[in-house]
């Protein structure tokens, strides 16, 4: 069997579209995930017990279910749930791409929550005391004193999680969203060149992930020096 790598060059514009979607999804999910994850972390560490319990329950639930299942669940069940709540005649169409964004933000929030929680807990209690003693409120203390430090300490871990997220986004393929892998699959199936396409996709993922991981390691060393 002969390899035909020309199929890649031919379909480059289509693959590029898929790749851009993958990068976009990663960026949106990471940003949204870190934002909601931070809120979840604050809730988990809250002295308001019901809030802490609810946040912990959510995080543990998300972390105990395979991502594929969460994606399916959102894709098939949420429209039905929304219908049930709003009493609409037919289930609303959320669409593969929007489902993917919502799912990844909600799923990643659970993981980013645990990272941010560790980051917040790494800040000595004395910093909080000092901030309160100056008259700053809880919100100001978190926003101006604790979270900037927690975030700075956790940047390498947050980036590592983002690299994992970058690879995980390929799972949107199961709901037929056209990400990088989805685009490659479609081309490969159409032209009967799956081996070439999957190899190409693997190489691209490998190069990007390794480069990012290398960058994270260097960053980690620099942060260690600053501290």
């Amino acid at each position: 069997m002969a390899f035909d790598f020309d199929v890649i060059a031919r379909s480059l514009p289509y693959l590029w579209k898929g790749f851009r979607y993958t990068v976009e999804l990663t960026a949106i999910a990471a940003t949204g995930g870190i934002f909601f994850g931070t809120l979840l972390a604050l809730a988990r560490l809250s002295s308001v017990k019901p809030l802490a319990l609810a946040a912990a329950g959510y995080v543990n639930l998300m972390r105990s279910i395979p991502l594929v299942l969460v994606i399916f669940w959102f894709f098939f069940l949420v429209p039905v749930l929304v219908q049930g709540i709003t009493g609409a005649e037919r289930p609303p169409q959320i669409g593969a791409e929007r489902t993917a964004i919502i799912t990844f933000i909600m799923f990643e929030a659970a993981y980013f929550c645990e990272i941010m929680r560790a980051g917040i807990q790494s800040i000595p209690k004395g910093q909080v005391y000092a901030s309160y003693a100056l008259g700053l409120t809880y919100g100001q203390t978190m926003r101006l004193v604790v979270l900037p430090q927690a975030f700075r300490n956790m940047i390498p871990v947050l980036l590592t999680q983002t690299v994992i997220l970058f690879q995980d986004t390929s799972l949107v393929y199961v709901i037929s969203a056209t990400d990088f892998l989805g685009a490659a699959s479609k081309v490969g199936q159409r032209d009967g060149r799956l081996v070439e396409m999957y190899t190409f996709v693997a190489v691209v993922y490998f190069v990007i992930s390794v480069t990012l991981s290398h960058f994270v390691r260097r960053l980690q060393k620099r942060i260690a020096v600053i501290r």
Binding site: P124, G126, Q127, Y129, A130, S131, A133, Q149
Partner: peptide, 8 residues
């Protein structure tokens, strides 16, 4: 405070 607690 004992440990200064300046914001690093």
């Amino acid at each position: 405070f004992q440990h200064f607690e300046l914001f690093p």
